[in-house]
Simulated assay, not measured.
Amino acid sequence: MTIDERTEVLRYTAFSADPAGGNPAGVVLDASGLSDARMLEIAAELGYSESAFVTAPPQGLGEPGRAYTLRFFSPKAEVPFCGHATVATAIALGERIGTGELTFATRAGTVPVTVAQDPTGGFRATLTSVEPHSEPVQEQDLAEALAALDWPAGDLDPAVPPRIAFAGARHLVLGAATRERLAALSYDFDRLTALMLRLDLTTVQLVWRASESVFHVRDPFPVGGVVEDPATGAAAAAFGAYARELGLVAEESELTLHQGDDLGRPGVLTVTLHAGDARVRVSGAGARIVE
């Protein structure tokens, strides 16, 4: 896709080897001549939850030829970090310069990514998050979130406590008591947007625990002008750190997050936690979307 004579916009999906699954992102591999306003316009024209824009790295960052600056725009605003667009960009670069290590400078910090061949014959990317943390959510803010979602408090899973988690961007984690509660998502767009802007949230991470290491998740993203994000790498990283911090999973764990099933765009995010290392790995397949 060519937006203008000089700017080629690639389209990739992340967290699925099927172009019809996962979360699509726009990728501009050479955004050196684009203003912030133009990048925002391109993201809005594409209409994906985020698009990624690649420029030269800061001096001294990473291996020459394999380090870049990466910025992310939703249709409404720039966001500090986006996991699925990072994976999409890494796979687009991997197809062109080969597998191996990449380093991205983002507004959230430095994000290393490894690109490898996927057993399906395509590519797979694994990002390493910035240092994560979490914090309590105030009772009045939780009440407002539940009201915007139209969730009775009894629909929360007490084993997945409400909390704001960060691994490059802020996400409000809410546990659903049943798979049916997670599936029945219909919320007040404007009311949730107002709360998220006040709390500086990127998404709300809605979680249902299927087993010890398997979760189903959904991510409303009204602040980006999108009702729901089909697969959210930044939220997956934040959730992995949150789950370990609260003792929901072991310090050394591999979690499987299913997302997008309720949207007809199924994707799988693998979250890897290593004991003694606070940073979280999130990996998934990707595929080029051919126009």
Rank of each mutant, 00 (worst) to 15 (best):
I97M: 14
Y68E: 05
F104A: 04
F104Q: 08
G65F: 10
K76W: 00
A37C: 03
A105G: 00
A52S: 15
L29M: 12
E45H: 09
P64Q: 06
F104N: 09
T99M: 01
R96G: 12
A92K: 07
E45Y: 03
G65R: 14
F81S: 04
P64Y: 05
I91K: 07
G100I: 01
A77N: 13
A77W: 00
V54N: 04
L93M: 13
A52R: 02
V79R: 00
R66Q: 09
R38Q: 15
T99D: 14
A90H: 05
A92N: 12
R66T: 08
A44M: 03
T99K: 12
P75F: 06
P57F: 01
R71F: 04
V27T: 11
A90F: 04
G98C: 05
G33A: 14
E63I: 06
L40P: 06
R38F: 11
F104T: 15
P58M: 06
K76M: 04
Y68D: 07
A56H: 12
P57E: 02
P75A: 11
S49F: 01
R38P: 08
P58N: 06
Y68C: 01
H84E: 07
I91Q: 07
T86D: 03
I97V: 15
V27M: 03
T103I: 13
V28H: 01
A105P: 01
F104R: 10
G65A: 11
T55D: 11
G100S: 11
F73H: 14
C82E: 06
A52Q: 05
L40S: 14
T106L: 00
Y68N: 04
R38I: 08
T99L: 00
A25E: 08
T103C: 04
P64L: 04
E95P: 02
G62Y: 02
D36G: 15
S51K: 00
A90R: 04
G47T: 00
D30E: 08
A52N: 05
P75N: 14
E63H: 09
D30F: 13
T89N: 05
T69W: 01
G33R: 09
E101L: 02
E50R: 05
R96M: 10
P80C: 11
S51G: 11
T69H: 08
L93C: 09
F53H: 04
S35P: 10
A105D: 14
G26P: 09
G60I: 06
A77S: 13
G94K: 11
